[in-house]
Structures are given as C-alpha cells and as structure tokens.
C-alpha cells in the first residue's frame, strides 16, 4: 500500500468513515516490520488494538466457580438429561464385552493345545459329555410324567358323553309337557 493511500485511509478513519475491512487493512499495514517513521504513532495505536483484543478474563477457573456459586452441578444434570444416551452407552458396552468374550472363546478353541490326541481319552471325554447331556435330559423327562395325569383327566371327560345321553332322555319331558297340555284342554 502506498503512503498516499494510507494517508487517505487514516483521515477517513479519523472521521469515523472507514469500514471494518478498511480498518483491518490499516491494522495489517501497521503490523508490518518496516514502516516509515512518520507513522510510528499509528503503529503504536493500531498495535494496541491488535493486542488488546487478545486480553483474557483473569481467572482461568471462572466457569467452575460460577456454577459452584449458583449451586448448580454440571455433572448431575447431565445424568438427568441424557438417560437415553446413557442406556445406549451401556448397550454398546455390553455388546462389546460379549463380542470380545466370544472372540477369546473362539481363539481358545482354535488353539492346538486344547485338542485331545489320544483316541481313548477323546472317547472318554465325549462319553462323559454325552452322559451329562442325557442325565440332564432325563431330569427333564421326569417332569414330563405329569402329562400322564393330564391324560387321565382327559379320560374322565369321556363321562360327558353319558351326560349327553341323560340330556337326550330329558327330551322326553317335553313330550310329557305336551301331553299334560293336551289333558288340560
């Protein structure tokens, strides 16, 4: 920027007629290392504005102190506000634990050290496992014996037939009614 343009911008600036962009231009110009000595005052003034805007609030722990003073806990409110998110977090965590667990079980089974080389031992192990399953199955079967009682109950229901027969017999009563009416007449 030539000095003529700078002078023009400065006088515009001092009349309060510069735009923000023009003011930024001035700040950038005066922030340069080498500028004519006649501008040293402006250099200091614009340099001041550049530095002053970076000044920060002195207490770095202000935010926490502020909420403490209000008696507001930023932590507890969090829980009240996002139970849904928290549930998702738990679900994701549980799924991850499950996946990691399955992975290790899988890896463990794949390890060669867990295979049984001796056929007899393998047979014995398999038998043991199958016996365990059948034993548990039998326990379950015992419970099923109650079904017999249910069957007996169903058998008892056969007597309903006799009840039906009784009803049929009762139809004769209506015939009796008709005949009494006839007698009345």
């Amino acid at each position: 920027m030539n000095s003529q343009k700078i002078d023009l911008l400065i006088s515009k600036y001092e009349l309060g007629d510069t735009t923000l962009d023009e003011e930024r231009e001035l700040k950038a110009f005066f922030a340069q290392e080498e500028i004519p000595a006649k501008y040293r005052i402006y250099r200091e003034i614009f340099g001041f504005y550049d530095t002053a805007v970076q000044e920060e609030f002195p207490d770095p722990d202000f935010d926490n102190r502020f909420f403490d003073k209000l008696g507001v806990s930023t932590e507890s409110k969090k829980g009240q506000l996002i139970p849904f998110n928290r549930r998702i977090v738990w679900q994701v965590a549980a799924s991850l634990v499950l996946l990691v667990g399955l992975y290790f079980v899988f890896q463990f089974q794949k390890q060669p050290g867990n295979e049984i080389d001796d056929p007899k031992l393998a047979y014995a192990e398999t038998k043991k496992a199958l016996m365990m399953i059948s034993g548990n199955l039998n326990t379950g079967m015992k419970e099923l014996s109650s079904i017999k009682t249910f069957d007996e109950g169903v058998n008892e229901l056969k007597n309903i037939k006799s009840f039906n027969e009784g009803l049929k017999t009762m139809e004769k009563i209506s015939t009796f009614n008709r005949s009494t009416n006839f007698v009345k007449q």
Binding site: E55, F57, F62, D63, F66, F67, T74, K78
Partner: peptide
C-alpha cells in the same frame, strides 16, 4: 448448564 457453559460463558473475555 452444559450449553450455558459452552455457548454463553466463553463471552467472559
């Protein structure tokens, strides 16, 4: 409080 902290309090400077 979180929104207040992240959107309002930064104006402190």
């Amino acid at each position: 409080p979180e929104t207040f902290k992240s959107e309002i309090l930064p104006m402190k400077h």
